[in-house]
Design a binder for these strands. Structure first.
Lengths: 125, 125
DNA sequence: GGTTTGCTACGAAATTATTCGTAGATGTCC
DNA sequence: GGACATCTACGAATAATTTCGTAGCAAACC
């Protein structure tokens, strides 16, 4: 699946807040932007149809939850993005990001550590 | 500007091949997927209107060229992508990409070099 | 010079995403 | 029980993207 931007917003709410009602999601989204309640509802209904959300209907106000993990979703998005924006060159993307965005010392260290792991586990290249 | 996927395909042809006619672009795109000549034409006309392409009309078959560089376009795309898919965390994106895609020894070394530069030029974090 | 070929411009259909209004059902509160 | 609030479902308007057909013009070709 390739969630749209709006769908990603909703997924983020559910990933961080856990299973929620439409009202809760709508309230969270309203913090950052303007959208109607039924808009959120419709989006979540569609996402449910698509299999992006699960739905618990025992209460009158249904409870929705993400049916996909943040990890796997990001994996898909990254694949697609590397392909369309960087013609498959992941390292170019990494270079671009590192050059362009501030990262904390700690984050940089983590990245280095990961790089070292990759290096040592794959001496063939 | 935020080029669409189709627009990116055309930009890539122009970035790699240099200024080209619609026919040349159409031929290049036809290698990888199926699309009509007038579709390519229309897309390029729209991109010209948007200012993504320049157009040289001295010949009957106009010559188009990218009006934006690959570098700056990718910068914009990355910004947007970090925001929507990783809620602003560039380092998370980097980690995800590194974990997920193969890179050559040489690429990894380049990335490390860049990391060291960042580290040493910013001792404050 | 008439036919064929190749090009642009234009309109419009098809698709997808986003948005919201309204209707109908159900629950809540005096 | 009646008024009000809250929820779902649904239809539909709007917008953006992608697609292609057709028309009109200019060039090239016997």
């Amino acid at each position: 699946m390739k969630p749209t931007d709006s769908e990603l917003e909703i997924l983020h709410v559910l990933w961080t807040s856990g299973p929620s009602t439409v009202r809760q999601v709508h309230e969270a989204l309203s913090q950052s932007r303007d959208l109607g309640y039924t808009t959120a509802l419709k989006l979540m209904q569609i996402m449910h149809e698509k299999g992006l959300l699960t739905r618990e209907e025992s209460n009158r106000s249904h409870t929705y939850a993400a049916a996909v993990t943040e990890e796997e979703t990001q994996r898909g998005l990254v694949d697609r993005f590397v392909e369309t924006a960087f013609r498959g060159s992941a390292s170019k993307l990494v270079m671009q990001v590192l050059g362009q965005h501030k990262a904390s010392r700690q984050e940089l260290d983590e990245i280095k550590k990961l790089l070292n792991q990759i290096n040592s586990s794959d001496e063939s290249n």
